[in-house]
């Protein structure tokens, strides 16, 4: 145990650098996936055949490709087409795109759960599609969407570790580097696991809070 504390004091500062990148990747890809997911979802419920078909196709393609392959593609293949990204940019873009499919399906479910009478009431006072979405449907859908959204946040935090495969020195990669140079596998990976857990706990509590709020009407 004493050895563990010693290792902790020694490795924590290096691992904290990884934590910073983990947080940047998570927040960046969370924002991107939310934006893209909302666009796909609105296309899907637009009632315009071309848009909704395009969005359904896109979602299926994205869902069918493993995150790690998407990351490789962005980081190693795109330069051949003239688009060179830094590892961090590729990680945020790749995770953001990958998760946009799940976000879109979640948002769509939330939007479709709103009573049709709400949309009719909005139309009856002269609102168009956009205004109906912005003023009536989305504010109500948010309540339904938030608990699963919180779960996506937790999954993204953990999946940000996949960025290590394209050399982003986030928490998992920092851990691996320290472990392979010191052979202190037990200390290092226990520490890494605890640090992920520590970051997840506030999110888990947030999900519980969302669920409670969604429960009360």
């Amino acid at each position: 145990m004493q050895a563990f504390w010693r290792d902790t004091i020694e490795f924590l500062p290096i691992l904290m650098n990884g934590v910073a990148l983990t947080i940047i990747v998570t927040i960046g890809s969370l924002l991107l996936s939310t934006l893209l997911g909302l666009i796909w979802a609105l296309m899907r419920v637009s009632g315009i055949g071309v848009l909704s078909g395009l969005s359904a196709g896109l979602i299926n393609v994205i869902r069918g490709i493993p995150i790690i392959v998407l990351l490789f593609y962005l980081y190693f293949v795109m330069p051949e087409f003239g688009l060179t990204l830094t590892a961090l940019q590729a990680a945020i873009l790749g995770l953001g795109i990958a998760y946009s499919a799940y976000q879109a399906e979640n948002f769509r479910a939330g939007i479709e759960a709103i009573d049709k009478g709400q949309i009719e009431a909005a139309q009856a006072i002269g609102m168009g599609w956009r205004q109906t979405m912005r003023r009536v449907v989305l504010p109500q859908a948010i309540k339904i969407v938030l608990p699963p959204y919180g779960n996506v946040m937790i999954m993204m935090l953990k999946d940000s570790s996949q960025a290590s495969t394209i050399t982003v020195a986030e928490l998992a990669l920092q851990g691996k580097l320290i472990a392979s140079s010191t052979f202190k596998n037990t200390s290092v990976f226990t520490l890494v696991a605890l640090m992920y857990l520590t970051m997840s706990i506030p999110l888990i509590l947030l999900v519980r809070h969302f669920e409670k709020r969604a429960g009360q009407k």
Partner: peptide, 12 residues
């Protein structure tokens, strides 16, 4: 204007 059977007020 229209008044609906199930009111359709905006609950939020």
């Amino acid at each position: 204007s229209m008044v609906f059977q199930r009111f359709n007020l905006f609950p939020h």
